[in-house]
Amino acid sequence: MNIIVIGFGFIGRGVIEAFLRKAERIRRLDEDFRVVGVSDSRGYVYDSEGLDLKRLIGVDELSQYPSGYCRGGSAEDLIEMEGVDLMVEATPTNVVDGEPGLTFMRRALRRGIHVVTSNKGPLVVAFHELKSLAEEGGCQLLFEGTVAGAIPIFSLVRESLQGDEILRISGILNGTTNYILSRMHFEGTSFEIALKEAQERGITERDPSYDVDGIDAACKVVILANALMNRDVRFEDVERTGIRRVTQEAVSLAKRSNFAIKLVGTIDRRIEVAPKLVPINHPLCVHGTLNAVHIEADLAGEITLVGYGAGRETVSAVLNDVLTVLKSEAKKKG
């Protein structure tokens, strides 16, 4: 299969590195696995015979790749190249209009190119449209890396709960806010100090509103509701309260009655993201930057998954999605 990787940031580079590390495993599924194109925001490199992955991860900027950097070329040019089978879309998330990823995904799916992504934006803005395009194009759209990083929530439901109906989902879906609330819970620090620590440790951006106002968690709630509960939920449908007003006193009062305050996303009668009281012996009550997803299914009952939701671990989810496509294509070929 011929792969293109759109985006050469943290995830894009990490995925290419993983392709290299896991080359043997990949070749067992597909002898002709090649990364033929990689793009960044300013241009792309392309080689129909396959790019040299070692050299790719050796460069700081894509333009330093030894041959053929097409400055000014766009990811769309790569999508239009002959013989592309799978696109890994790893451009930065934009939850307002999903761009530029949304255009890339639409274009790829219309051409029958499988799409694997860790980019929430396009799925938040146009989940059902993209799903329909994938169906019409006879190709797969996989997005495990968009929610709770390496936690295999979509794969679990798709592969192991095929006969179940998912009745309710709740989860700690943002590692930054969980870090802040955990510091407040265990160390008795104020929200402001815990936030500063998170910024100093690089866990959150200079502008932390994406995390602390619950925007990131709400995006994940939208994707979970649409993908696993067949709802038609938009970002505006999520009732959203962040953690800025959570005081040290509130955390202490909660602690004294054996609760921890956590930013929880819930899909139920209500679709919401809000700080909630989680009993300290509940499986959702995880601390630090951990994420947890708790699902209630009609046959399986309650299942909780715990893991890291962002950072390098996300690469695991993207790689698994790529391998899932390779496997199903290998099966088709018999």
Binding site: S170, T241, R245, V246, A250, A254, F259, I261, V264, T266, A274, P275, K276, L277, V278, P279, H282, L284
Partner: peptide
């Protein structure tokens, strides 16, 4: 609803 009317934030159990 009451908390919203009073300008307070309600934290309820999951």
């Amino acid at each position: 609803r009451i908390a919203e009317e009073e300008g307070a934030l309600l934290l309820s159990p999951i």
